[in-house]
Simulated scan of single mutants.
Amino acid sequence: MGHSYDFPAAVKGLSAPPRPTTGGARERILDAAYKLFLQRGIRDVGIAELISRAEVAKATFYAHFASKDELVLAYLERCHQDMTVEAIIAETARRTESPTGRMMSIFDVLDGWFRQQDFQACAFVSTMLEMGPTHPLGVSSINYLAQVRAFIRDLAVEAGLERPDAFARSCHILTKGSIISAVEGDREAAVLAKRMAASLIRDHGGDAPMNP
């Protein structure tokens, strides 16, 4: 692809946007969790470390979060606000009004994310893989990821693609697979996934360039 894009702050911050600490105990705990969970995952970070990093008392921690799982759910909600669907939707709409073009530009957004020096895996994919698909935190992560698939399906319907549900499922597999590949070190993953998405669009009766 080889293009250089000027990403808005919300999209540039897909991996871990800096947030000002407000000073409130709950926000300090959440700020600490946000940084530690993104860097090291869920299981590796204990409550004692979170309390120390947030500089709060143990009683204060439990006054705001009844358990570590409750804190993780708040962390995932913050990631949802900062990193995923809203940023992708806004950026694709900024680039083009064409539903097909917006589907293709999802991979351009991912490409910009993957090429950041501080790139980190999607919090929802990481949490789901770490905790498993039946754990409540895994279920929550899957539900957030499903919103991306719903967005793709809406675009497919708008573009008049055949079998929009099947298309959205396949395209969603490409987005998640490209994230895993990028974590492995393949910074071209989104470029390759975009080419496969174009083929999928054509297979479902749409019009997409042969060499996107």
Rank of each mutant, 00 (worst) to 15 (best):
M1P: 09
G2F: 14
H3D: 11
F7M: 05
P8N: 08
A9C: 04
A10T: 07
V11L: 07
V11G: 03
L14V: 14
A16D: 06
T21G: 05
T22M: 03
T22L: 07
G24K: 04
G24I: 02
R28D: 07
L30Y: 04
D31I: 01
D31F: 00
F37Y: 06
R43F: 00
A59S: 13
A63G: 15
H64Q: 06
F65N: 09
L73F: 13
A74D: 04
E77L: 11
H80V: 14
D82I: 09
M83P: 08
I89D: 03
A93W: 04
E97R: 11
T100A: 10
T100D: 05
D108K: 07
L110T: 00
W113V: 11
F114V: 02
R115T: 02
Q116E: 09
Q120C: 08
A121M: 14
A123V: 10
A123N: 07
V125A: 10
S126R: 15
S126L: 15
T127F: 14
M128Q: 15
P136C: 14
S140R: 14
N143S: 15
A146M: 13
Q147C: 08
R149L: 05
F151C: 11
I152G: 09
D154W: 12
A156Y: 06
A159D: 00
A159T: 04
R163E: 02
R163A: 03
P164Q: 06
A166N: 03
F167E: 05
A168I: 05
A168G: 02
R169S: 07
S178C: 06
S178H: 02
S181N: 07
V183R: 14
E184R: 15
D186V: 04
A190N: 03
L192C: 07
R195E: 04
M196R: 11
A197P: 01
A198W: 02
D203A: 10
H204G: 04
H204L: 05
D207R: 08
A208P: 02
M210K: 04
N211Q: 01
